[in-house]
């Protein structure tokens, strides 16, 4: 039983990390209908720049909370800038192109960011200096750290914030309008280019925060780490329903839990024939089953959705 609760905790935290990445992913995804392969790489830039800034700030003798705050702020600004730049240079000219064209651009941008990062921060696996002392609590027989709790909380807070932004602010209205029909939104006086740029800015800032949390939690950053994270976020976003913010959260959590429980229990259930090596197989099978039953994802809406 202890083990089971621990697995739930593991899945919840892993899922929150996926959700953190997926939140930004789904925003961009929703507004442009674009599989932004470069989103994971923004997470990577967040982690690597955060690490560099953290080391610099600590080296300058700043106390940890301030150094951490500065690192997060710096990473958010850098990623935000990169996101807006990316949108302006690479994606905006393709607004009217055939739908798969931006996908190829996204792959190109992803390669550019990866090797740009490699030139700046090398291709080593960089370790976080041992500055974060996490406290471990025993909850119902499971080990839970303060960092894990803060990851889950951050994901929830950001989700709530995004929901508020989209549902209750003028900007959110503009975003939803652009999402539904950019042309009509433009006719209604909405500067759709700016709305899309802001969406990229917010999505990229979220990616930076996700990167910082990944860095703090796993203690490692690497120029190629974005690919896997992006892939998982993509999966989570689709599972929850493309463009849906609560869907990204739910999809992320679900994916994390499935992976955790599949790793933990499938080996026993199948008598050792399928072990933890089939973790992703089970995750994808659940995804396929969900999509067969609900072709628009768990919380996605079918209205106006033809793709």
């Amino acid at each position: 039983m202890d083990i089971f609760i621990q697995q739930l905790v593991n899945g919840l935290v892993l899922g929150s990390i996926y959700a953190l990445v997926a939140l930004g992913y789904t925003m961009v995804y929703g507004i442009l209908g674009l599989i932004n392969f470069a989103h994971g790489d923004l997470v990577m830039v967040g982690a690597l720049s955060g690490l560099a800034l953290l080391k610099g700030a600590l080296g300058a003798g700043l106390p940890l909370p301030i150094a951490l705050g500065l690192a997060a702020l710096g990473a958010v600004c850098l990623c935000g800038a990169l996101g807006v730049l990316m949108e302006r240079i690479a994606y905006r000219p393709l607004r009217r192109a055939p739908k798969l064209a931006p996908l190829i651009t996204a792959i190109g941008v992803s390669i550019l960011i990866e090797y740009g990062a490699a030139m700046i921060w090398s291709k080593q696996y960089l370790a976080l200096p041992p500055v974060i002392q996490s406290t471990t609590w025993q909850v119902a027989g499971a080990a839970v750290t303060d960092l894990q709790v803060s990851i889950v909380l951050l994901a929830l807070v950001l989700m709530a914030g995004l929901l508020w932004l989209i549902r209750a602010t003028p900007l959110g209205v503009a975003m939803r309008a652009t999402e539904q029909n950019a042309e009509v939104a433009g006719l209604m006086g909405i500067d759709t280019h700016r709305v899309i740029a802001i969406t990229f800015l917010i999505g990229s800032a979220l990616a930076a925060l996700a990167g910082i949390m990944v860095l703090l939690y796993y203690g490692v950053a690497h120029y190629f780490m974005g690919f896997m994270l992006g892939l998982k976020a993509f999966t989570a976003a689709v599972l929850g329903g493309i463009g849906s913010v609560p869907g990204a959260m739910l999809g992320g959590l679900l994916l994390g839990l499935i992976e955790s429980l599949a790793s933990g229990y499938v080996g026993d259930l199948t008598g050792g024939v399928f072990g933890s090596n089939y973790r992703d197989v089970f995750a994808f099978i659940v995804l396929i089953v969900v999509l067969v039953l609900r072709p628009v994802g768990l919380l996605g809406t079918a209205s106006g959705e033809r793709a």
Partner: peptide, 28 residues
């Protein structure tokens, strides 16, 4: 066969998953 109802990016993720499933089986 299971993806007949899916469209666009929902189909993309399922096919992506299928590709990974095959690779994982070959690897294991």
């Amino acid at each position: 066969s299971p993806t007949l109802k899916l469209r666009g990016d929902y189909l993309a993720i399922v096919t992506l998953g299928f590709g990974e499933i095959i690779r994982i089986f070959l690897n294991n």
